[in-house]
Simulated assay, not measured.
Amino acid sequence: MSGALVIGGGPAGLMAADALLSAGHAVMLADSKPSLGRKLLMAGKSGLNLTKAEPLSEFLTRYGAAAPALRPMLSAFPPEEVMHWAEGLGQSLFTGSTGRVFPHGMKASPLLRAWLARLDGMGLERHVRWRWTGWDEKGTGAVSMETPDGALRLTPDVTVLALGGASWARLGSDGQWAGIFRDAGLPVTPFAPANAGLCVDWSAHMKAQFGAPLKGVAFHAGDLVSRGEAVISARGLEGGGLYPLSPALREGAALTVDLCPDVELATLTKRLSRPRGKQSLSNHLRKVVTLSPASRALLMECARPLPEDPATLAALLKALPVPHSGLRPIDEAISVAGGVPFAALDAGLMLKARPGVFVAGEMLDWEAPTGGYLLTGCLATGLWAGRAAAERLSRG
């Protein structure tokens, strides 16, 4: 075949196809699943968080160690451009109180339908149930695909790989491509869970709190701090307030919870020092410090018996240790760390060892918390790789 082959029908792959088609090139897109955008649709079930409306300098900090490598891509497709792009597909948007941006309809399906209609109108040739099985062993650079009609060998001028990470395998991101890369001598940083729940072995006393949210608290792990909500579950803790701590928790950092993040330690100590008369310590605590039932239950679970000394108790409320046994498994994680290192790629996200082959999306070795950062990162790297592939085609 001549033209471009995009393998992977998620946000990064679709954006790469969009860039190539917009540049006037023929594009064939292949995906292993029966339909495209399955992980995008799943993410949109609870409300499609497209991006986060905040300055790019702050936005970039959410990508940790990968921020310098991602800066060009995110600068070329920052949050405001993501919003313009979605509006161009007929989606009216709103920005929530935390800066998160959503379609008014909340779901991903209207955006995906409009996007696929646009791509089809531009001439996209798409195939489903086509699984990439590697490159031709003879060293010709041909791409091998397994299709419902049998094995197929393609020789595109450029290829964009957007095969996802290794979380939510049932939706297509099974990470099997990593074995193909390693067999071909290409580097892959091992996968690890990101944006994952935390395993906590609760006592039977916590059963009444399962499903209850922890609100108005701050989570600390290593050098990372996150204000947000987490839910107490039968298996531990999960939720957007906890997910930004994944890098530290994955490395075995201890978790502490500030149950009173808006109250200074000295003020808290002063309140707890008030005379309590014949009241029990737990009743005194309930009267002088405002804690939700879930926060009180967590305190008793992790710190009983409570210290009598006001200063010691105040310090405990400001940094409650929560014993844990690490993150949930990769396939339960929303995303992963690990993938193709940026050092193996040129400035256009092309593999240095495989000219004409570009990589985008969650295949790359980066991670970010939920809140619009994941989707924006996938869209931005897909657009960047697609434009670089289009430029290579234009040069012949």
Rank of each mutant, 00 (worst) to 15 (best):
L56D: 00
L74C: 09
E80H: 07
A69N: 12
S57G: 12
K52N: 15
R71T: 01
A65R: 14
P79A: 08
G88E: 07
E81C: 01
R71F: 02
G88F: 08
T61S: 08
P55A: 04
A67L: 13
L56V: 04
R62I: 07
K52A: 09
A66V: 08
F59E: 13
N49E: 11
T51H: 00
E87C: 08
L60Y: 09
H84R: 14
W85Y: 02
L48R: 14
A65K: 08
G88P: 12
L56C: 04
P55F: 03
S57N: 12
P72E: 04
V82H: 09
P55S: 15
E81I: 06
M83T: 02
A76N: 08
F77Y: 06
F77D: 03
A65F: 10
Y63F: 13
A76H: 01
R62P: 08
L50C: 08
L70W: 15
E80Y: 09
H84C: 07
L70I: 12
F77G: 01
P68D: 10
L89P: 15
V82L: 01
A69W: 14
P72R: 05
E81L: 11
L56I: 10
A69I: 01
A65Y: 06
F77L: 00
R71S: 11
F59P: 09
F59Y: 07
Y63E: 01
L48I: 05
E80F: 04
M83R: 07
P79L: 02
L50K: 05
G64E: 06
P72F: 13
R62F: 13
E87N: 09
E58V: 11
L48Y: 12
E54C: 07
R71A: 14
L60N: 10
A86M: 14
L89K: 06
K52F: 06
L89G: 06
R71I: 03
E54P: 07
L70M: 14
P78R: 03
P72C: 10
H84L: 14
L50G: 05
F77I: 01
G64D: 05
A67Q: 04
M83D: 03
A66P: 08
T61D: 12
L89E: 07
V82R: 11
A67P: 04
P68K: 08
V82W: 05
P79M: 02
L70N: 10
P55V: 00
T61A: 15
E80N: 02
P55Y: 02
W85A: 04
S57K: 11
R62K: 10
P79H: 07
H84I: 07
S57E: 13
R71H: 06
E80G: 03
M83F: 07
A53I: 00
P79V: 01
G90I: 00
H84T: 13
F59M: 02
S57Q: 12
F77R: 01
S57P: 13
L70D: 05
L48H: 13
A67V: 00
A66L: 06
L56W: 04
P68T: 03
P79G: 00
G64T: 04
E81W: 06
G88W: 07
V82C: 02
A86F: 14
L50D: 14
H84E: 15
L60D: 03
A67T: 01
P78H: 05
A66T: 10
R62A: 15
E54V: 03
S75D: 11
R62M: 05
